[in-house]
Design a protein around this nucleic acid. Structure first.
Lengths: 230, 230
DNA sequence: AATTAACTATGATATAAATCATATTATTCG
DNA sequence: CGAATAATATGATTTATATCATAGTTAATT
């Protein structure tokens, strides 16, 4: 990790978007741009909360370890996304780890200033509340999927999420370069199984593999796999 | 469901606790006490959000269906707990179902008034934000458990949660009367497997079954099952 | 450029947990 | 109160998915 002089335009993060213009200079004075190299841990489960971060460049995985060899990826964060916010609960101990998946630049805002911002801006607090409400809905949907949906459905769900989150280029390739292992850790399965499921989906003509990425040929049908059919 | 004249003391729910005294009469004017019989559905997945509810009496399960025969219980709500709050995200469609597990009395607050309360009270918005933050942490922990922990660990986790949520009487019996099927649906397994796991835990002397409930004989050791041990 | 380390690819095997089957016992309710 | 419905209890069987094993490829790092 190192401090960098890159700086954002104070306009794209949740904090800036929900602060009045007069507050921006204060934000500017209280933020710190940090950069992390690929694979570097940004913060880790069990450590104390320092503040919140906004992703400026790169991709971050938010994950929870189980055994040293196993983890579940909870989400991916990209430009504009906030991370570290899970720390605003009662517990001052971080429940998750954040790791850079490529070279990442972040804007860090220490907790005291963030709390001050919350106290001084009702719209910000309200926006954060809504943000959490959405995150909770999403988390609970995934809870059900992990408990009751089969792996193939979760793989389909993962691909659809990636397509939605990262977008696709002109050829339809999902604009990400995540490894299969990483995708598997999001889907909540092993990479061997993930790989087999990709093969099945390929055989069924729902996806296509390219050198660099994946193309969803039939998002409709993929979505079907993520629904119950009794 | 029917409207009832029972009324609470306007002091125990998140809304009342975070409103100034002057607001309480307004709450009083805008709430409605409702009662539901055992097994009655309070609101269901896919329907439109009407407002939030505070449990006054009884136990409610918050669940998400998969196939008609399968569901995951996300949480149990008891006196003082708020339900329906998952609806405050961007989506106006409820993502979950709430069902009465016994006879339940609720205090209902319609969405417009609840939103008005949020707008007029920063502390309330802040409290709700923190509430969500905690719920999210909890949900994500369970996500990992469902994905990576074995069933026995999840059963142990379920028992510890029940003990914590419902408390225990002088004999150590957990003060709830949930069926095994319900507990299994919370643990994310079938009731047959849940039953087998209870047998194992009994054989290991960690729990004891009574006619009416369960006693945790060794909470320490149960907790061990919920941690990684490589 | 060479060496290590990480990721992909597949088949074979093992196993945890779901499903199926069938009694038995409670509980609800007309 | 007695019929019907739901919950418990257990064994047998199946199946989805993880684990193990082994190679081949690509990507990092010195």
């Amino acid at each position: 990790m190192k401090i960098t002089k890159t700086s954002c335009d104070l306009s794209s993060c949740l904090l800036c978007k929900n602060s009045v213009a007069g507050w921006l200079p204060l934000i500017d004075a209280n933020r710190q741009m940090l950069s992390f190299k690929k694979k570097e841990v940004i913060f880790s489960e069990g450590s104390l909360v320092a503040g919140v971060y906004f992703v400026y460049k790169g991709t971050v995985k938010i994950h929870k370890a189980w055994s040293p060899q196993k983890e579940l990826i909870l989400s991916f964060a990209r430009k504009g996304d906030m991370i570290g916010y899970r720390a605003l609960g009662n517990d001052q101990i971080l429940p998750i780890t954040a790791t850079a998946l490529d070279d990442v630049t972040l804007c860090f805002v220490a907790l005291p200033f963030f709390e001050l911002s919350l106290q001084s801006s009702h719209p910000l607090t309200y926006a954060l509340m809504r943000f959490y409400a959405n995150a909770l809905q999403e988390a609970e949907k995934r809870m059900r999927n992990l408990a009751l949906m089969d792996v193939k459905g979760r793989v389909a769900e993962t691909l659809l999420m990636l397509h939605h989150k990262f977008g696709a280029d002109e050829m339809g390739q999902i604009a990400m370069n995540l490894t299969r292992q990483v995708m598997a850790a999001y889907a909540g399965t092993t990479y061997e199984t993930f790989f087999r499921m990709l093969n099945e989906l390929k055989a069924e003509g729902l996806i296509q593999q390219t050198d660099e990425s994946l193309i969803l040929l039939d998002a409709e049908k993929l979505a079907t796999l993520t629904h119950t059919d009794p």
